[in-house]
Amino acid sequence: MKQQPDIDVVIRYLEEPGNEEHKRSLDEWLQLDAANLDIFLETKALWQGDVLPAAASYNISQQWQLLDVQLTAANIPPVTITTQPQPVPAAPAEEKGRIKPIVTRYWWAAAAAAAVVVIAVTLFRQPSYIAQQTAQNTDSLLLPDGTRLYLNAHTSVKYPRRFQGSNREVFVQQGEVFVDVKHMPEKPFSVHLKNVDVEVLGTSFDVKETKQGVKVFVQTGKVKAVYKNGKSVVLTPGEEAEMLLAGTTISTRRHQNNNLIAWKTGHLTFVDAPLSEVAAVLGDYYKVDIVLKGEGLADKKLLATFHKESLSEVLDILSKTLQVKAIQKDSLVEIY
C-alpha cells in the first residue's frame, strides 16, 4: 500500500478531527519521527492561527481529546486554493465518477505544496518565539542556553526557540517568574516586562508583574532593573525593587530571608518577624486575605520555619505560639 505524503496525513486530520481513521494515521506518523511533531504543530498553528505549544511538553495520547475539541469548536473551513481558470474539455457523463478522484488528488497535491512552502517560511523566519502559560499550577522550563525559568501560577512568558546574536531575551507577559540564568558574560540576559527591563549576566532572581507595577527580587548575583523612562537601580542579593506603573520612582528594601520566592522553594522563615509582616507573607503565599483584629497584634513577633505545610497547620502553630485565635472563612483569615 502506497504511503500517504506527510502533509497529507496532517491536513486530512485537521479537516476531519473526528475521523478515527485519520486520527490513527496521524498518531502512527507522529511516532515514526520526533521531528514530525514539530511539522504537525507548525501546520496546526498555521491552520488555526494559534500560538505554538512547546514541543517537549506536548503529550500526544493525553492531548487528543483537547485537540479534537479545539479544532471542532474552531469550525475551520477547508483550505481554498484559487488558480487562473483554464478551459477544460467537457467529459462524458459516464466518466464523471472517474474524474472526481483525480481532481481531488490534484487539490491535495496543491494544498500540500502550499502548506510545505508556508511551513518552510515559518521555520526559517527568525526569531521564532514559543509561548508558555500556567493556570493554577507552577511549572519550570529549560531555555536553549541552559537558563531555567520557574513559573508561578497564572503566569505567561514568551521566549525564542534559539538565542541568536549577542543577547538573550525573555518576555514576561503576566505573573511571576524566577530566573536561574546560565552564566554567559559574552551574551547578556534580559527579561522584559510591560514597563521594566531587567538586565543580568549570570544570577538568579524573581520578577513579578502586578496590577500596580513590577517587583524584582535578587537571590544571587547582581541585576539592573530599568524603567521605560530610563531610571534604573542595581540590585544585589537580598534586595527587592518595586516600580509602580503610576509612578516614576523606584523603591528598594532589603530582606533577611527568601520568603518572596517561597512559591518556588516551599520554605517560609520568620526570625522575630512582626505579625503584620507574617500576615502579608502568608496571605501572598496561600492566596488569602489575612486581617489582624485587636490592638498590639501587629507587633507580636514570630520565630518559626515552615516547609510546605497547609494553611490550617500554619494557623494552628501561629495560634499556639503567639497565643492568638485564627479563624478562616473561605479566602479570609481573621486573627484576634
Rank of each mutant, 00 (worst) to 15 (best):
Y106D: 00
I7A: 10
A110D: 01
R105W: 05
A55D: 10
E199D: 03
K293M: 05
Q126T: 13
A280G: 06
P77V: 10
P127K: 07
P77R: 08
P101H: 00
N59K: 12
S25V: 07
V216D: 11
Y129F: 15
A120F: 14
K320Y: 01
P144F: 03
D289E: 15
L282A: 04
E277A: 10
L235R: 14
S319L: 02
V157L: 03
Q48A: 04
S276H: 09
K215S: 14
V281K: 08
E209I: 06
L149W: 13
Q219N: 13
P127V: 03
Q63D: 08
G213T: 08
A131N: 13
Q126A: 11
M243P: 02
E28I: 13
R253D: 06
K228S: 11
I11Y: 00
H183C: 05
D284N: 15
V117N: 13
S276I: 11
K96V: 10
Y58N: 10
D27I: 10
D180C: 03
T236H: 02
D68T: 05
A112S: 15
S312T: 12
M243T: 00
K182M: 09
R161P: 09
I76V: 14
G165H: 03
L46W: 13
L302F: 09
Y227R: 15
K187Q: 10
A112K: 13
F217H: 11
T134E: 11
E169N: 13
L71F: 07
A113S: 15
A34G: 01
D8K: 01
T138N: 15
N167L: 15
W47E: 04
V324Y: 01
K287I: 11
V51S: 14
W64Y: 07
H255V: 06
L193P: 04
V181H: 03
K231S: 14
L235F: 11
K287F: 07
V88T: 13
A45L: 07
S25A: 14
W263D: 05
V10G: 00
V117C: 12
L282N: 05
Y285E: 11
K231L: 11
D139C: 04
N36L: 07
A225T: 07
T220H: 05
L292R: 12
G238A: 08
V88M: 05
D50S: 15
